[in-house]
Write a protein that binds this DNA or RNA. Structure first.
Length: 228
DNA sequence: AACCTCGTCCTACTTACGTCA
DNA sequence: GCTGACGTAAGTAGGACGAGG
């Protein structure tokens, strides 16, 4: 099936969502002209083109640039009006990915060059980059979400632990006989920040002194379990 | 200088096709 | 063969921005 065959066909694409009124942005019906510009079809400028959106006009202009290879399949063979979908081959995907690694956006020259190499229309290259950026962003959002979830879980655990510790300390305070079993007060070190009782070793004393000298700030993002 | 229009590019959202389990 | 989920190409609306009048 050649480009000429396809480009001569005017295809009416009916968006189901639009028909159902699901999309607030979409018009009820969309007339899609594949391979032909409005000007081509109307035989001149300033007729119907002026009523089209900028994007549509631009798209049609792009399509004029490269229609040398048919990556589309006409759906009119079977009499349906649905659009057929381009599938990029592995080589095309690989080159696009490689290009995306170097720059996630394209200038017009790069777009043209890439389209020429891939034997695609510049508009298709542009769309691929738009969708690729969207996928990258979505993936990053998912990763961020996962990280926040883990931080939240960590903070919840820490909070639970601190509550329990506070409860234990209060219980300890209300139980005088237990004082008898504790070491002399002078040997106890209490963390001024978390109010935990430290041990009597040199290291814990040192830690306590350090805590006095320099209050520690807990950053769950850099050190989720850094508290004491 | 301030404004308006136009063209272009982008994002966000959506639709619809192809594939696969 | 049918079906639902998923990935993705493509359509659309609207905003931002620069150029030119």
């Amino acid at each position: 099936m050649g480009v000429e065959e396809e480009s001569c066909q005017t295809r009416l694409v009916l968006g189901l969502g639009s028909i159902r009124g699901e999309s607030k942005k979409s018009p009820p019906l969309t007339l899609s002209l594949f391979g032909e510009t409005i000007d081509d079809l109307c035989g001149g400028q300033d007729s119907a083109a002026s009523s089209l959106s900028n994007a549509s006009v631009k798209r049609e202009r792009d399509e004029e640039v490269d229609d040398t290879e048919d990556h589309r399949v006409s759906s009119d063979d079977d009499g349906s009006n649905g659009r057929k979908k381009l599938r990029l081959n592995k080589a095309q995907s690989a080159l696009l990915e490689e290009s995306f690694k170097h720059h996630s956006t394209l200038n017009p020259k790069q777009k043209q060059e890439l389209a020429r190499k891939l034997k695609l229309r510049p508009r298709q290259v542009e769309v691929w980059f738009q969708n690729r950026r969207a996928r990258t962003k979505l993936k990053q959002t998912e990763l961020d979400c996962e990280l926040l979830k883990r931080c939240c879980e960590s903070l919840t655990d820490e909070n639970r632990r601190l509550h329990k510790e506070l409860h234990d300390l209060k219980a300890l305070k209300l139980a005088p006989p237990l004082y008898m079993h504790l070491p002399p007060a002078a040997t106890l070190a209490i963390c001024p920040t978390c109010e935990r009782i430290g041990g009597t070793t040199a290291s814990s004393e040192k830690a306590a002194k350090t805590s006095f000298a320099k209050p520690h700030f807990y950053n769950p993002f850099t050190n989720p379990s850094a508290a004491c």
